[in-house]
């Protein structure tokens, strides 16, 4: 079994590399779009109380629909390929980011705003130097869980011809070859872990104060 796997990897190195590249491309584009929409939507939701209920509910509902169903539903609208795959993955990734962003902004302590306002910050400076940095830990936590979900679900993209590591797994399923299933799954897992590693590095750079030990 292990030998089978190694043989396959040796014989199909460039093919596997292409799958990994596609997988990451789909995932990252989807995540990036979800960050833009999720952070903007989450902030908007936190600002207006009524908007908050609306937007949060909408995305809670979207969350319940299985990603596979979204994929299939998108085919008649967008056809097959990368576009529907990225769209479906974004829809999947938006809720955790949006929810966390909204909560992050709403939980900025009033006294923080009062003291910053009291020393003379404008509304814009308040957003930039108080609200956003204080909401950032939660926003990043939302992005982190979105990242994990997207990389795992991107496997399904192969179903509609968008490529990625799903190709290997679905081929394995079709041909009943355990070695392919194994390789595909392990690679997805490694991508997940690798991205999480890079992500915590980014967190460290963005929020050094969270990591420094008390002197």
């Amino acid at each position: 079994m292990l030998q089978d796997c190694l043989n396959y990897i040796q014989g199909n190195g460039s093919d596997i590399a292409l799958r990994i590249a596609d997988h990451m491309k789909i995932s990252l584009i989807a995540l990036f779009a979800a960050i833009l929409i999720g952070v903007a939507g989450g902030y908007a939701a936190s600002v207006s109380r009524r908007g908050e209920k609306w937007i949060m509910n909408l995305f809670q509902i979207l969350r319940v629909i299985p990603s596979l169903a979204i994929l299939v539903l998108l085919i008649p609208v967008m056809g097959v390929g990368m576009k529907p795959a990225v769209t479906a993955l974004s829809i999947l990734a938006i809720p955790p980011i949006l929810t966390n962003t909204c909560v992050g902004f709403m939980e900025v302590p009033p006294f923080m705003l009062e003291s910053a306002k009291g020393i003379g910050m404008t509304e814009w400076e308040l957003l930039l130097h108080v609200r956003f940095p204080l909401a950032l830990p939660l926003i990043l936590a939302g992005i982190r869980s979105a990242l994990v979900e997207v990389i795992a679900s991107a496997t399904l993209a192969a179903k509609i011809g968008a490529g990625g590591l799903g190709e290997i797994i679905f081929t394995g399923l079709g041909l009943n070859r355990t070695d392919l299933l194994l390789i595909g799954s392990i690679l997805v897992g490694m991508l997940s872990l690798g991205s999480l590693g890079i992500f915590s590095l980014i967190r460290r750079i963005l929020m050094p104060y969270k990591y420094r030990r008390a002197v």
């Binding site: 302590p109 006294f111 923080m112 003291s115 910053a116 020393i119 204080l134 929020m207």
Partner: peptide, 11 residues
């Protein structure tokens, strides 16, 4: 302006 909770920015 100084308040009881101080409000230093943690970051």
């Amino acid at each position: 302006y100084v308040i009881q909770q101080i409000g230093l920015l943690p970051h």
